[in-house]
């Protein structure tokens, strides 16, 4: 489904990703871990096509199309979803209006009929309920005045509504208490259907207690330094990331 080969990417002329490789198959859950500054969030932004995050070499194949050729919205329409670490507030644009528009363009891209207002409302209410957001959040401006946890849950709600092929969660666990963490994890787990894939970017192992990954990758200095199964996350939990430096020294 997603195949990243030798990806190099720059942010403000600085080389952040330096030859990253990653293969994600349908239905798989991949966790990307690593120390601060390893390029974890950059990977999410490059995949989604944010301005200023420039892929300088390598390629990304997403279900047979070259992702790098697509605009931000075309990637979303192709089924790529990024749950932001810091979702922006958009006063004046209501959550509901925003999501309805978004759901329908993505449906259109998939060749489906747009949802009627009533159908959409039903789905939106169910999704809000699933992530424990009161219904009046649908009427409020996008993320406007939401707490950190509410913003994260709002991202998961959008993910549920948009039914993407590939979900990238950028530190969706940061700043959450245990209850909110569980809500986020349940939201994600409910979307695991054997076809939908996930990339879970996280600094801590904590989230992975709730969302069981199939693979864990440790990102360091813009590359995958080590890959393994869920046991790798446990190892990191115990030893931290200090070993990476040693490994790096050895390599040099």
């Amino acid at each position: 489904m997603l195949s990243i080969k030798n990806l190099h990417a720059n942010v403000e002329d600085q080389n952040i990703l330096k030859g990253l490789n990653l293969e994600v198959g349908p239905g798989e859950v991949h966790a990307i871990m690593g120390p601060n500054g390893a390029g974890k969030s950059t990977l999410g932004y490059v995949l989604s096509g944010r301005d200023g995050y420039e892929a300088t070499a390598g390629n990304i194949d997403f279900s047979g199309t070259n992702l790098l050729d697509l605009e931000v919205e075309e990637r979303a329409q192709a089924g790529l979803f990024l749950a932001f670490q810091y979702p922006v507030e958009i006063p004046g644009v209501s959550n509901m209006e925003f999501m309805k528009e978004s759901v329908n363009v993505i449906r259109k891209a998939r060749g489906e009929e747009p949802l009627s207002a009533a159908e959409f409302l039903k789905k939106a209410k169910a999704a809000a309920k699933q992530v424990n957001l009161p219904l009046d959040f649908l009427k409020r401006g996008v993320n406007e005045g939401f707490s950190g946890g509410e913003k994260k849950r709002n991202e998961i709600m959008q993910m549920i509504l948009l039914e993407p092929k590939l979900c990238i969660l950028d530190e969706s666990d940061s700043g959450l208490d245990v209850d909110a963490l569980q809500v986020v994890a349940n939201g994600v787990n409910s979307q695991r259907d054997g076809k939908r894939s996930f990339i879970i970017i996280t600094h801590y192992q904590r989230l992975l207690d709730y969302i069981k990954p199939d693979f864990v990758h440790i990102l360091a200095d813009g590359k995958v330094a080590k890959s393994g199964g869920p046991e790798l996350a446990k190892e990191v939990e115990k030893t931290g990331y200090a070993w990476l430096e040693k490994a790096g020294e050895k390599a040099e």
Binding site: G49, R75, F98, E101, L162
Partner: peptide, 16 residues
């Protein structure tokens, strides 16, 4: 960018 990452075209996002 946020709106576009949810699939809206640049012009749609601008209007919104």
């Amino acid at each position: 960018y946020y709106l576009r990452s949810r699939g809206l075209s640049a012009s749609q996002a601008k209007v919104m």
